[in-house]
Write a protein that binds this DNA or RNA. Structure first.
Lengths: 146, 146
DNA sequence: CTCGCTGCAAAAAATTTGCACATTG
DNA sequence: CAATGTGCAAATTTTTTGCAGCGAG
């Protein structure tokens, strides 16, 4: 898992350094979006220290390689859980527990492309986050969903 | 147009103040996302001055009333161009000229809901931005779209 | 006249930059 | 050992807060 990311990293000619590995590990363990300072804090509780600048730069790199994503709604970062062959990556965000489910769906992309076409718009990329309730939270507290 | 927003503002018990009118006017005139400081700058060129805090607070208010939106990709603000009866507001963003086309489509919402349902996820709201080329830019520079 | 709104000062938070030194391959 | 990457210091940018006084209804 982290191994996969490391492989991609190196395949693109980037070095595998201790900070990069640490950031990847923290992202891997957390299913919720984390800010750079969140990551720094988590590491600190483990006696590890990374400069925030390093974390910013690492996250930049990971996002460029599509190994991580910046969530639009929260601004936090999560590790990518899909491979890059499947089109636009989308997210379901649970309003209750914050958990993220990443997915990709080519049909949805196609429909959106067609739709945009009607406006004369040529779509290249789709940003998309659904917010709602994951199955667990919905089952536990259906009233939350009104 | 600005008049409509003012009506909504007042209908919710908010006062119509000079700063609020100015912010609405600037948003109305610009079809591209603006940051609070962009707005301040534009006003300054007209000899008007608003404190940035006021602009932040006004934009907050407008977003809460759905009279404006914060774009996910850029973080900038635009005036809402739809009324609130039509479900989730979505955006097409031209990568070339930056122009925004807002739209809503209930079918798309429904399909997304159904799709999410398969994951046991209950969708409440959809954030969605398409990036690509508007008809003008696409016609002028088709090579941009590869 | 009253409550909500604005401006100001200031702080806090988020992000970026340049450079000397350390580390990876 | 060469190229990359890290940490540090510092600056910049963005956003938030508290409070005194102004102004819309």
């Amino acid at each position: 898992m982290v191994q996969d990311s490391i492989r991609v990293l190196q395949a693109h000619g980037h070095k595998l350094t201790k900070p990069r590995r640490l950031v990847l590990e923290v992202l891997e363990e957390n299913e919720k979006p984390l800010s750079p300072y969140d990551i720094q804090g988590i590491l600190r509780t483990r006696g590890k220290y990374l400069n925030h600048v390093t974390i910013y730069r690492t996250l930049d790199l990971l996002c460029n390689l599509n190994l991580a994503h910046r969530m639009l709604s929260s601004g936090g970062f999560i590790k990518c859980s899909l491979d890059s062959t499947e089109g636009c990556h989308r997210f379901m965000v649970c309003q209750n527990c914050g958990a993220i489910q990443e997915f990709a769906d080519k049909e949805l992309c196609q429909e959106e492309n067609d739709f945009a076409q009607n406006f004369g718009f040529h779509t290249e990329h789709h940003l998309s986050e659904f917010s709602g309730f994951c199955s667990q939270c919905y089952r536990k507290q259906p009233q939350l969903a009104e």
